[in-house]
Design a protein around this nucleic acid. Structure first.
Lengths: 211, 211
DNA sequence: AAATGAGTTAAACGTATGTTTGAAACAGAT
DNA sequence: ATCTGTTTCAAACATACGTTTAACTCATTT
């Protein structure tokens, strides 16, 4: 089928270029050239560049949130009080992130970078789109997070949640770059999953910190 | 003197617009209009848009690193073993950040946002420029950081340092936005310094986390 | 075999960008 | 008052961008 092939090729090319250069810095011409399709194809199939950006995110985030949601489903059954530890919550996130790419390291790196960019380059329309699209899942998750941190004041919880988010977004966003530096400096290889493993105790300790 | 007035007006306008919209998304025309100067003035005084971006950063980072350096000078004398706690190091950073704006809240917010952007939107040339410009200060600082965390393996230290950096960069970068959300959600005001105060124990605990 | 309609294509459109130009305005020194 | 070097200015330049158009292809339907 000609249709979905072109659409897929555009999405594949777009996500790579967006991840590498950012949104504003990636032109439709570079995307369509890389995809081997005609320039007009983007506007024909997606309507606009904005819509293409949203489509790139949706392709990753839909399965990602499905995984999160089914984890939450499972734990609402197993633990009716909704009491999960921070480590458990972070663990589900790490596994959901690793999971969406189905073991493909290249796609995992791209997804991480896009997740980071969503927070840093998200110019208005992207933030609003993602907020509306995944609002329900987000709020469900926050219930668990609140219950996992009963000792925090609401404001402390708010800020620490975003400290955590920032650390994760930055790390994911610069994952490839940082791994390259590490390789240079220590001559040690480590996988994306290794980094996520290192990140979890750091974040959990931060959330639990006594003031 | 006509010269330095124009230069200053351009820098003032540029830093505000960069902080608000990012680098690629800010045109020279919007900068010169806001500054009330002729479009050609940017290329006349700075040479190019890239050079203007670098100049905006230098104006903030030079005094910032001077403050850090003089703190380190002081502590190399007082504590010849170079043994500072993480809390002390973070405290100097927080004070150096607050200090460069000289109590001006607006400039503080801009500086924080720019610091965040430097890590997230820094497209090649900016990163290289900053690395070369402040390499010596950075390496001096790392000596203190290494001594403050003797229990960490070099690789753990590497990653935790960047987890910390990410958290800080994200928080600074989105400071205004996050404070607005907090105001909406909890009807509580808090200052930029308050947030930096909250951030420190979070980071320190993360650095110290047991694996 | 003709008609339909979705998909593709090359070309053009209008606009916005960073940069350059050459003349005008201005300051300070001679 | 004249010269000199610097700064400002309106205008133009060349290029890149997202988007639109209209002709064309081609499988599917009638």
């Amino acid at each position: 089928m000609a249709h979905s092939d072109t659409v897929t090729r555009i999405l594949d090319a777009a996500e790579e270029l967006f991840a590498e250069h950012g949104f504003s810095e990636t032109s439709l011409r570079s995307i369509t050239t890389k995809a081997g399709v005609n320039l007009a194809a983007v506007n024909y199939h997606f309507g606009s560049k904005k819509a293409l950006i949203q489509a790139v995110f949706s392709r990753y985030l839909s399965p990602f949130y499905k995984r999160i949601a089914s984890s939450l489903d499972h734990y609402e059954k197993v633990k009716p009080d909704g009491l999960l530890s921070i480590e458990e919550i972070l663990g589900y996130f790490a596994r959901a992130i690793s999971g969406v790419s189905g073991g493909d390291r290249r796609r995992l790196a791209i997804f991480m970078r896009l997740l980071g960019l969503a927070y840093n380059q998200g110019q208005g329309h992207l933030r609003k789109y993602l907020q509306n699209e995944f609002k329900a899942d987000y709020e469900r998750l926050m219930v668990f997070f609140n219950k996992a941190t009963p000792e925090l004041l609401p404001q402390e919880r708010f800020w620490r949640f975003h400290f955590m988010l920032g650390s994760a977004a930055f790390t994911l966003s610069n994952m490839e770059h940082l791994r390259a530096i590490q390789q240079d400096e220590f001559e040690v290889q480590c996988t994306e999953e290794d980094v996520l493993e290192l990140l979890q105790p750091f974040l959990a300790a931060g959330i639990r910190a006594k003031k």
